[in-house]
Every structure is written in C-alpha cells, then in structure tokens.
C-alpha cells in the first residue's frame, strides 16, 4: 500500500471530464444530477455554485459558452455567472488537461518541501504551471491551503486527495492515474 493517507480510499474516483463541446451540457446522468441540485434550492439562481461545479465536471473547465448555457438554465445573466465563477479559484476559466494537479504550496506544505513536489510534477509531465501537457493529460498548478497541514505536502488531482506526497512518489502517483 502506498504511504499516503487512507482518506483517499473514501474519495470519489478521479473523474475524467467529457470534452465534447457539441454535446448537451447536462445529458443523461448529468441531467438527473442537475435536476436534483435544483430541487435542493428555493430558486434556480440559488443553485449557481453546485451547477457550476457540475458543469466543470462535465467539461473540465468553464468555457464562455458553458457559462452562457448555465446562465440560460438558471435565468441568470452571463455577467452574473461570470462574476461568481471568476471569484472562486476552484473554477477553471481556461482549459486544463484531463488531470488537474493542484499542489498546495502554503506555509506548512512549503516547509515540508512542496516546492520540490511541484517541480517534480512539472518535470514529470513536461509542463509549465497552468499549461496543458503536450499529450493533453496534465495541468499542474499551485494552490492555496488544502486543509491537510498535518500531512504535508497535500495534492489534489481532480477530485482525489493525496497526502504526504514527496518528490519521490510523484512518478508512481502519476502512473496510477488511468
């Protein structure tokens, strides 16, 4: 077994986004999830945050046309959707690779060598911070505190959480991604 935290086992499996921009935003199973989200709120507009998360799960990022579609679905204006989406760093306003690797570089992780972890991810994937690797698989970014200071360095790959990551176990971690 790997030496990162067992909480990983409880997390959802890494989600590879569907990237067909021509497909309806919320079709099939996503349609059901969308309707379920709406059902939790008194008004459509109140569902904006979870719906944006869902849209990002489907598309990988929030393209202008995705935000426009979300605005239509929730009776909002594009400007309102953009205002919310641009406020939260968790929403990607430009395309990312199939796997978005977010390395925490806040104080605790930094002291435990997050800089080296970040460097290793970049060298292993052959990318610059925020860019997409040539094979389209990876985008590596720095992120703010992931709330796992006791298990530095913390890394988030799509929805999956990894703790106590060291430069040495980066290759194995990447190799394990489907």
């Amino acid at each position: 077994m790997r030496d990162w935290h067992p909480a990983v086992a409880a997390a959802e499996p890494s989600q590879k986004a569907e990237r067909d921009p021509a497909a309806p935003l919320f079709g099939g199973v996503y349609r059901e999830r969308f309707e379920r989200i709406l059902g939790r709120y008194p008004t459509k507009r109140a569902a904006l945050l979870p719906v944006l998360h869902l849209a990002q799960e489907v598309r990988g990022w929030l393209a202008p046309e995705t935000m426009t579609r979300v605005a239509e679905l929730l009776d909002l204006t594009p400007a309102q959707v953009r205002a919310v989406a641009s406020f939260y760093t968790m929403f990607n306003l430009k395309p990312v690779g199939s796997y978005l690797v977010q390395v925490c570089t806040n104080i605790a992780c930094d002291l435990c060598g997050a800089g080296k972890v970040l460097e290793r991810f970049l060298s292993e994937t052959g990318t610059e911070p925020g860019a997409i690797s040539a094979d389209g698989r990876y985008t590596v970014v720095e992120t703010e505190c992931l709330g796992a200071c006791g298990f530095a360095t913390a890394v988030l790959i799509n929805d999956r959480f990894y703790e106590s990551v060291t430069p040495e176990n980066v290759p194995a971690l990447l190799a394990e991604l489907p």
Binding site: P64, M67, T77, P78, A79, Q80, V81, A83, S86
Partner: peptide, 27 residues
Amino acid sequence: CDEVQHNDVIGRTGKGYGARIAFDLDV
C-alpha cells in the same frame, strides 16, 4: 445597467486587486 435599464450587461469579475467590472463574460 441591471436595475434602471434592465440590460444586465455589466457585472464584476475576479477578486482582490484583480476585481473589475466586466461586460457579459468579460469581453
């Protein structure tokens, strides 16, 4: 824009020092 003319074009984008007014999807 939103409440007098109801054209709903102007919003805000970003946060912190980067916060600005934006038109539609910041075009």
